[in-house]
Amino acid sequence: MTRQVKKIICIVCPRGCEITVELEDGKIKSIKGYSCPLGKQYAEKEVVNPERILMSIVECVGGDLPVVSVKTAKPIPLSRMIEASKALADIAVKAPVEIGDKIFENLLGLGVDVIATRPCHEQRG
């Protein structure tokens, strides 16, 4: 039987609770220090498979700005963030783009889409 205690800083809200997770043979035995259910959920996930939202930009052709800002619609594994950002390096979209438009489907086969977070209007004049 292996026992492990992991300390986690919760990133759900700006409060930054320090959560202590006790693991036994890789299974969660106790979670302490969270202040809300979202924090508990986060800690459960974080000890097994930390995930984050990726934010980046994608080239926007013919837009009023050269790029459109994007994010993953759901968190993706932390370990694959840079790889995921790289997957967005070779693509470009055409203006107009609206907030929420799907920019890229099924990023790295993770089943997560990439969506626009800023509009990119067509360049005028």
């Binding site: 930009i57 080239e59 790029v67 840079i82 950002s85 790289k86 967005l88 390096a89 070779d90």
Partner: peptide, 8 residues
């Protein structure tokens, strides 16, 4: 360079 060029 462009932002995405380093990753490329």
């Amino acid at each position: 360079t462009e932002v995405k060029a380093l990753l490329r």
